[in-house]
Design a protein around this nucleic acid. Structure first.
Length: 565
RNA sequence: UGCCCGGUCGUCUAAGGGUAGGACAGCUGGUUUUGGUCCAGUCAGUGGGGGUUCGAAUCCUCCCCGGGCAACCA
């Protein structure tokens, strides 16, 4: 029992947690309300998972709530299909939102806000072309110039804006701009566009509207309407904060505050939704949920667990400096969780026949093996053992080096959960290809009751030939050949396609699995012993089972032998 | 060349004037019926120069480097 006074345990907090704790302590807020604001124009990826974990995690930690709010202000790129998939992904990650909202819920409200700005002389309708507006914007080093339409009266502007809404004008003919400061050092404050005409149906409001608010006109106001306390976004929105605050101030709304953190980058992949879409459209991958994609749906199909992804998102931390997380951290998180929960099964990928010469002809013995050595409650399963087995071709060498703990002439190994065998002979065909290994087993070395006294350094996985269940296995490697594809692409006219790894998918059409796998309930996470972690693909059927390799096991032997070369 | 951010082991991330710590990756060993897991150990960092201070990753200053900003995208 610890009766020591709580010694001000200094747990490390990220900068946003510090802000929240300060706000709570100083009474600025009584509770926390965050939001996760995806635009439904693509699928969620691991970078969004960071944001989701942050927003929902913060609310969880400080006893608050999180809204899911779709930032659906651009009907041209947004669809209900994206909305549905985003919701599915957030739920799969393990989060449930307090309210489901859409920026489009507030279109009428936002329109009224615009009218208020107009009446207060803080917004005007500009008939300039987009080229003219761009030219008048100036550059980061040179101030902009006022539009000739900047001095229209509020009455004229209000009339024009209503007529924009009524559909009197074609797209591009005019827009509504906030009237701020054309010489501001912040380009975003140089009379930003806040409403534009789009004669396009919206996935929720149909054809009710032909004018739509821009991000800046919608986001902060939606936050304020919902009374979001901490509006957390990525670094590239930093310059928007001044405009965010300006609008809240001029419209006298609830003072939501925006805070920016560095988005996630991960080695050997890309996070740009635009570029991910291109991979899908060009058929380089098999859809948004291709197991090589960094999308939530891709990771799910690949066999990553929500727990592993959440763990990853908390381990990477939250800060403001640009970062590239090593993908090996994600793999570590996957292995750590999968090691605890996965069912162990034996699967031989590249078989060679192993004959047990002293095994009674035709006899089959059912051996028992644990499903998961990390979890006794996972129970055991039976594995048939007989006189003809498959083992992995790479587990035999005719002339093995000393440190090779597997099979070779005269050598003994343990067959996992079975017997120790000793290799007496092997057969090669006319091409020198190994076709058969002949060995004898030691009856008193049976797993669990070994009295043989024989020492075997290595243990091999195996499967009885007559009982083997054929499965297909898909092995995945990183999608790109370079650690930072986006950076390389930026230096290469944006052509990230040049860095695609052409060997990122290897299909093993037939692998031989122990029969237990055929009877397992669907949806299990597996470890194929000595190989890696595998998960049934969505296309798997009872007749044809297909497994995706999530990640290999760590393999010191492979690493060392590679080093030796 | 203007404005705004940022710079701590290879990669992330702590230390908020008082011993630069953790994780991943790497490397050594030990245990092991998975060359897995687990355990132990080890390598490795404050961008640079001045200044303030008994004491600076931390405060000041100059410099260097990286990122962002000129969509009717978000």
């Amino acid at each position: 029992m610890s009766d020591t006074s709580p010694s001000e345990e200094r747990t490390s907090r990220n900068f946003i947690e510090e802000i929240i704790e300060r706000d709570l302590k100083e009474g600025r807020h009584k509770s926390v309300l965050t939001r996760f604001p995806p635009e439904p124009n693509g699928y969620l990826h691991i970078g969004h998972a960071k944001s989701i974990t942050l927003n929902f995690g913060l609310a969880e930690k400080y006893g608050g709530e999180t809204n899911l709010r779709f930032d659906d202000t651009n009907p041209v790129t947004e669809t209900v299909e994206y909305v549905e998939n985003i919701k599915q992904d957030v739920r799969w990650l393990g989060y449930e939102w307090a309210r489901e909202k859409y920026a489009s819920d507030y279109f009428e409200h936002l329109f009224d806000f615009a009218i208020r700005l107009i009446r207060d002389g803080l917004a005007y309708v500009d008939d300039s072309t987009s080229e003219e507006i761009a030219a008048m914007k100036g550059t980061p080093t040179r101030p902009g110039t006022d539009s000739p339409y900047r001095s229209r009266t509020p009455e004229e502007n209000e009339d024009l804006f209503h007529r924009m809404r009524e559909g009197e004008f074609p797209e591009g003919s005019c827009i509504l701009r906030a009237k701020i400061d054309m010489s501001s050092p912040n380009m975003l404050m140089r009379d930003p566009v806040i409403y534009r005409i789009k004669h396009a149906p919206h996935h929720r409001t149909g054809d009710k509207w032909c004018i739509y608010p821009t991000y800046d006109m919608a986001h902060g106001q939606s936050d304020a309407i919902e009374k979001i306390t901490h509006s957390i976004c990525t670094l590239e929105f930093m310059p928007h904060r001044e405009l965010y605050d300006w609008l809240i101030d001029k419209l006298d709304l609830y003072p939501s505050r925006q805070y920016e953190f560095a988005r996630l980058n991960m080695s050997y992949t890309i996070m740009s939704k635009r570029r991910l879409l291109k991979l899908v459209e060009d058929g380089i991958v098999d859809g948004w949920d291709d197991p090589r994609m960094p999308t939530i749906s891709g990771l799910r199909r690949r066999g990553f667990t929500p727990e592993a992804i959440r763990d990853f998102c908390t381990r990477i931390g939250v800060a403001k400096r640009d970062n590239v997380i090593d993908v090996s951290l994600l793999e570590f998180c996957a292995r750590e969780h999968l090691n605890k929960i996965s069912l162990r099964r034996m699967v031989v990928f590249d078989p060679v026949k192993l004959v047990i010469t002293n095994w009674p002809d035709g006899e089959v013995e059912e051996l028992e093996s644990e499903n998961n050595p990390e979890d006794e409650s996972a129970g055991t399963r039976k594995i048939p053992f007989g006189g003809e087995l498959y083992i992995e071709r790479e587990d035999f060498m005719e002339d093995p080096p000393k440190k090779f703990f597997r099979l070779g002439p005269g050598r003994s190994v343990r067959l996992k959960s079975a017997f120790i065998i000793t290799c007496d002979d092997f057969i090669r065909d006319e091409n020198g290809r190994l076709t058969e290994i002949r060995s004898r087993y030691h009856p008193e070395s049976k797993s669990g009751s070994d009295t043989s006294g024989i020492k075997a350094k290595g243990t091999l996985h195996w499967v009885s030939i007559t009982h083997a269940h054929k499965i297909e296995v898909r092995e995945y490697d990183r999608l790109f050949t370079v650690a930072n594809p986006s950076e390389e692409a930026d230096k290469n006219d944006g052509k990230f396609i040049d860095y695609i790894n052409s060997d990122s998918l290897n299909v093993v059409p037939v692998a031989y699995a122990e029969p237990a796998i055929a009877g397992d309930a669907p949806g299990n996470y597996y470890q194929f012993m000595r190989k890696g972690y595998y998960f049934p693909d969505k296309a798997t059927t009872r007749e044809k089972q297909i497994y995706n390799r999530t990640v290999t096991l760590r393999d010191d032997w492979a690493r060392k032998s590679k080093q030796g070369k």
